[in-house]
Amino acid sequence: MYQKMLVPVDLAHVDKLEKTIQTAVDLALHYKAEICFLGVGTNTPSEVAHTPKEFEQKLAEFAKDCRARFGVVAMASAHISHDPAIDLSKAIVAQADELSADLIVMATHVPGIADHVFASHGGYVASHSDLSVFLVR
C-alpha cells in the first residue's frame, strides 16, 4: 500500500524518537516500503552540526545505522532552512512531495493550550499535506 515513507527526524533529540522510529520500521517491514529520513538543518552552526555538510553526513550516518539495526531500506535527505523554527512544517510538506513519498510518520507532542497559539509541526503537516500522516505521540 505504501512505497515510500517520509520520517522527519530531529537529530538533536534522537532519544525522544525511539517510538517514532519503531513505528516507521514496523510499517516499513509490513508494507515493504522504503524509509526516507528527513532532517531539517541550519546554515549556522547548531548543536547537531557545525556546517550543513556535517549535518548531511550525520543524517546519512543515522540512516545507515537504522538500516543495520532494523534491516529496512532507509535513505537520508537533508534540507537546509534559513529559519527552521518557522519553516520546518512547510519544509516537511514540500519535501514529502518532492521526494514523492506516500506516507509521513512523525513525532509530535500531546496537544496543549499552546497549540491554539502556535500550531505544532505535526498538526500543521497533518492539515496541509495531501498525504496520509501518522502522528506518533
Binding site: 547548531s46 557545525h50 555538510k53 553526513q57 550516518e61
Partner: peptide, 28 residues
Amino acid sequence: MGSEAETGIESPDGAANPIDTDYEIGQD
C-alpha cells in the same frame, strides 16, 4: 550512533579551517 563522534568537526563546503573546541552549542 557514535561513529561520527571521532570524526570531530567536518569541514564546511570546500576548504576551510574550523576551530577545534570542545564546546557544544547549546551545552549551557
